[in-house]
């Protein structure tokens, strides 16, 4: 019996911190490639939607014909992980979006854009993630969204701790779709990326 080929993880490369995701994924031994067009999307087994500006990414995805193919792949079960702007793109519903802002969708949740405030209110803090061993993650929130409400199939994996805006949902999973309000790609803690690679492999 031959070993199955290792999965290929795509990182949406329309705008934002694509490079940081590629670096973390490659650092844990995954095969990771940038995705800018539908042909490249066809070649990947899972997709990371990075941090950046969700309005810009949404517009460019529509212009380069990626919006519908992404929706189709996700409906067909392709695993996806969104950080910050990527979480917004994976939300079925958004609040405080730009006029006419479209998302890819997939996770039955309502996400509030820029919910934690402007950049002067951006922060880092510890967040416990359900099922993740090794203690809380040091989460970096940048003009971050939060999850306002979730549907019945969505599992809440993490919430903000004590202090202002406590108890906000900032990490969720629905089947093979994962989303965080914060940026593990910026901290060097690869545990959430490992979880995603395991989801793509079908072992988590």
């Amino acid at each position: 019996m031959s070993m199955p080929a290792p999965p290929v993880i795509g990182v949406l490369a329309l705008q934002g911190d694509t490079e940081e995701h590629l670096r973390v994924l490659r650092g844990i031994g995954a095969t990771a490639v940038p995705v800018t067009d539908p042909g490249q999307l066809d070649q990947v087994d899972g997709l990371v939607l990075p941090g950046g500006e969700s309005t810009t990414m949404g517009k460019l995805a529509a212009r380069y014909g990626l919006l519908e193919p992404m929706r189709k792949r996700i409906r067909a079960g392709m695993p996806a992980y969104g950080t910050c702007a990527g979480m917004i793109l994976l939300a079925d519903r958004i609040i405080d979006g730009a006029q006419g802002q479209e998302t890819v969708g997939g996770i039955d949740m309502t996400v509030r854009r820029n919910a934690f405030g402007r950049q002067t209110e951006s922060f880092e803090g510890a967040v416990d993630i359900e099922g993740l061993e090794g203690g809380p993650v040091d989460a970096v929130f940048i003009r971050a969204p939060w999850v306002e409400s979730t549907g019945p199939d969505v599992r809440v994996l993490g919430q903000t701790g004590e202090g202002g805006a406590a108890g906000r949902i900032v990490a969720v999973r629905q089947g093979s779709l994962l989303a965080t309000s914060f940026h593990p790609e910026l901290t060097g803690d690869a545990r959430i990326h490992r979880l995603f690679v395991d989801i793509v492999k079908g072992t988590a």
């Binding site: 934002g16 941090g51 910050c84 951006s122 922060f123 510890a126 003009r143 202090g163 940026h183």
Partner: peptide, 24 residues
């Protein structure tokens, strides 16, 4: 720091700059 939240860290500032990459 406000309880366990810290604003204005180097990671939060440079992280904001990273979000603007590949853009205009």
């Amino acid at each position: 720091a406000e309880n366990d939240k810290t604003v204005g860290t180097t990671r939060v500032k440079r992280g904001m700059a990273e979000q603007l990459k590949n853009g205009v």
